[in-house]
Amino acid sequence: MEEMIERIKLKFNAKDINRQKATLVFFSVEKKDLEACVLYMKEFEGYSNLTMISATDWIETGTFGLTYHLHNYKNRTDVGIKTYIDRKNPSMVSINTLWAGARVFERELKEMFGIDFPGCPRVDDPFALEGWDNLPPMRKDFDTVKYSEETYFPRPGRSTKDNVTQMEEKLYAVEAEVKKGIAKTVRKNK
């Protein structure tokens, strides 16, 4: 694993190496190096399984973070290869030729985040949302409560009893009071 990390550093200039567990490491590469890196990991390091591709909306820095999770069946280790792409013009190279399974993830990312993967088959087909005409719903600037209230006829008189408030009110009133007091003190001191 260590040797592999060294090689990655050397070859692809990997940064932000985050060794979370003995069998799990995250690192980030440049957008242009990603495909080569993934290919290298698949062909030479034995990471033959694409577990998934995930995305994070870093609205503050104006980027989308993409993470390619790969798994090695031989030594049962995982890597997460991160890369950051521009949020204004989100486009990423498709790796569907390496794993046919990548099509599903890319299609989903296209739908949920609006990240384009040119060249991926059926990437524009709806995945879970048929006929969606709004902002991609997983973006942070999409207000899902507002959208739901506008669209889905909320039933009046609905009240929420989620577990936290329920417990605080009914079972641990004293502890809740203490917690609120501490919070108030801290805020005052700030």
Binding site: A128, L129, P137, F142, S148, E149, Y152, F153, R155, R158
Partner: peptide
């Protein structure tokens, strides 16, 4: 109830 994709009524 607040999902972007699930009907309410």
């Amino acid at each position: 109830w607040d999902s972007y994709n699930t009907i309410n009524r």
